[in-house]
Design a protein around this nucleic acid. Structure first.
Length: 203
DNA sequence: TAGAGGATTGAT
DNA sequence: TCAATCCTCTAC
């Protein structure tokens, strides 16, 4: 069953980031359904410097973040990688959850072809990789995440509290103290998590 | 309009 | 440890 607008609206972005663990992310490319279970997420809010929408700064790029919950925010990072976020909260509140890793469920063969690798554990273990494996690019930006070719799904998986690990987010050292917020969430011991042991001591 | 830098990855 | 690579934002 696809997740509906209510799932993304008016809740704390951190709660939604946790709630998305165990949910499914799927795309339909040329009639092939490909996707998997979300095993790693990060929360972003306008209150902290890690976010593109810090202090509610709106630009052409991040305008989608200010829309109501349930929009896809896809942007290009380092000139190479498309990163996929789900916008949450209500219109005007630029909260978003970055999807960082998936456990492949459907269309695994298709993903391997996209990634030109036979190593299943590597095809979706990172935010830039999973978008490539699923064929997500900026043409998906601003789509609703219950669209016909891009959607999130409730897989009826219930995670226990002790199966959810929180840690500091990755790759945002420039955010200063805000980089220390434990807003990265992953499923404990899942082999597809992008960085199994977060570099806590990393400067 | 030029210049700097980034929510990453994979090869060295 | 570092280059790839190009879009986006900021300053002039």
């Amino acid at each position: 069953m696809k997740l509906t607008k209510e799932f993304y609206s008016g809740k704390d972005v951190v709660k939604i980031a946790k709630g998305l663990l165990g949910k499914g992310l799927f795309t339909a490319i040329n009639g092939n359904v490909i996707g998997g279970m979300i095993v790693e997420t990060e929360a972003y809010s306008p209150k902290e410097r890690g976010s593109h929408a810090y202090q509610n700064r709106m630009t052409n790029r991040n305008a989608v973040m200010f829309k109501e919950g349930g929009h896809a925010y896809v942007y290009l990072c380092y000139g190479i990688h498309n990163l996929f976020n789900v916008v949450t909260n209500v219109e005007g509140k630029a909260d978003a959850v970055l999807i960082r890793a998936l456990e492949p469920v459907k269309g695994t063969q298709f993903m391997k072809e996209n990634m030109k690798t036979i190593h299943e554990k590597r095809i979706t273990s990172g935010p830039g990789k999973l978008t490539k494996a699923l064929g997500i690019d900026r043409s998906h930006n601003a789509l609703k995440v219950w669209s016909a070719d891009l959607w999130l799904e409730d897989m009826n998986i219930k995670l226990k509290k002790n199966e959810i690990v929180s840690s500091p987010r990755v790759g945002i050292d420039y955010a200063g103290e805000d980089a220390l917020l434990p807003w990265r969430f992953s499923i404990k011991d899942n082999p597809w998590v992008s960085n199994p042991l977060p570099k806590l001591g990393k400067k």
